[in-house]
């Protein structure tokens, strides 16, 4: 394909088979190489009479003025050659799946409402900053199949696995602290992710867990859940997020992440949280723009229609024996 850019009337025009334009002079070869048609079989009048009759025909001809036969043939030929070249306009890019399941688990325990963060110069809660950073991160994961889990004492699926990343990101707006309980059970959230992915197609599986790390509830131990996650190839990236992360909590989260061959990041403010999500995003690259396929719209119909009209006109002329 050649062409492209936003050149013609703002359209992204391209030719699928540009090499066929080289056929444009082919009629010259045809005229030169192909056997000639038989001459008209009618007896020709003497030259003087023919001139007189011709002049009479021109002066009093009943036919309306029409393009010459050659002009029609050339017009039709060029239209066909352009149609053969495959003119297309290109539409929007389609999403190329990355083959990755990305699960975002957000801590909704009471401690996330602690106001030890600053956003736009104002004091705010951990959760407000989390939402401010993670929402655009999630919305930018085009190609990933994303799901959102909210957890505290219980864990629940906020957004099921979807490629509609903007819809998944928008669900963060609907989350509220304390809805699934007041305490933190990391094992519940990891266990829910494992259950969700058990029957999912094989592929890269990444879980991004945002918590202030104060795991203080749970029947299913986070270590056991992490072991189950490791079995299904779910890599756990934990972000400890809060004004102060106790060293024992940080060590605990790092240990859990290590079971799944994942990693632990620590974020104490908005900037470090953004840096952590960016670092995690970099380890899970998305399909680049060059891999994204675009819709194409065939624009050869007007040229084919021109050729068809030219053919009809030639037939009309031939009806009267015109040349």
């Amino acid at each position: 394909m050649i062409g492209g850019g936003e050149g013609l009337f703002g359209l992204d025009v391209a030719l699928l088979r540009p090499w066929t334009l080289a056929l444009a002079p082919a009629p010259l070869l045809a005229a030169w190489l192909a056997p000639a048609l038989a001459p008209p079989a009618a007896p020709r009048p003497p030259a003087e009479v023919a001139r007189w009759l011709g002049a009479l025909g021109e002066a009093g001809g009943r036919r309306p003025a029409a393009p010459s036969g050659l002009a029609l043939r050339v017009l039709g030929w060029l239209a066909l050659v352009i149609a053969l070249a495959g003119p297309v306009t290109r539409g929007e890019a389609l999403t190329t799946p990355s083959g990755r399941d990305l699960i975002l688990a957000v801590d909704l325990s009471a401690s996330m409402s602690e106001e030890d963060m600053r956003l736009a110069g104002r004091r705010t809660t951990r959760f407000a900053v989390l939402r401010d950073v993670v929402e655009p991160f999630l919305a930018g994961r085009t190609g990933d199949r994303v799901a959102v889990i909210g957890f505290a004492t219980e864990a629940y699926l906020v957004a099921p696995p979807t490629h509609d990343v903007r819809a998944a990101a928008a669900t963060l707006e609907e989350l509220s602290i304390g809805l699934p309980g007041r305490r933190t059970d990391l094992g519940q959230a990891i266990g829910l992710a494992v259950r969700m992915l058990e029957d999912a197609p094989e592929g890269e599986r990444l879980m991004l867990m945002l918590t202030d790390g104060e795991a203080n509830a749970g029947e299913l131990g986070a270590e056991d859940a992490a072991a189950l996650a490791a079995e299904i190839g779910l890599e756990l990236r934990m972000i400890g997020f809060g004004g102060e992360i106790a060293s024992e909590n940080a060590a605990y989260m790092a240990e859990i992440a290590a079971i799944t061959r994942g990693g632990y990041h620590e974020a104490r403010d908005r900037e470090s949280l953004a840096a952590a999500t960016e670092a995690i995003g970099a380890t899970a690259p998305l399909p680049g723009p060059e891999t994204r396929e675009r819709r194409v719209f065939d624009r050869s119909a007007p040229f084919l229609a021109t050729a068809l009209v030219a053919a009809f006109a030639i037939l009309w002329r031939e009806r009267g024996g015109g040349a």
Binding site: A30, R73, R295
Partner: peptide
Amino acid sequence: GLPGGATDLRPWLAGAAAACWLALFRRRA
């Protein structure tokens, strides 16, 4: 609308039409 989504017969038919069209350029003896 999708590259690779199907086999498009339009170029083949247009090619066949072009081959026929070339015959219109034969000289008249």
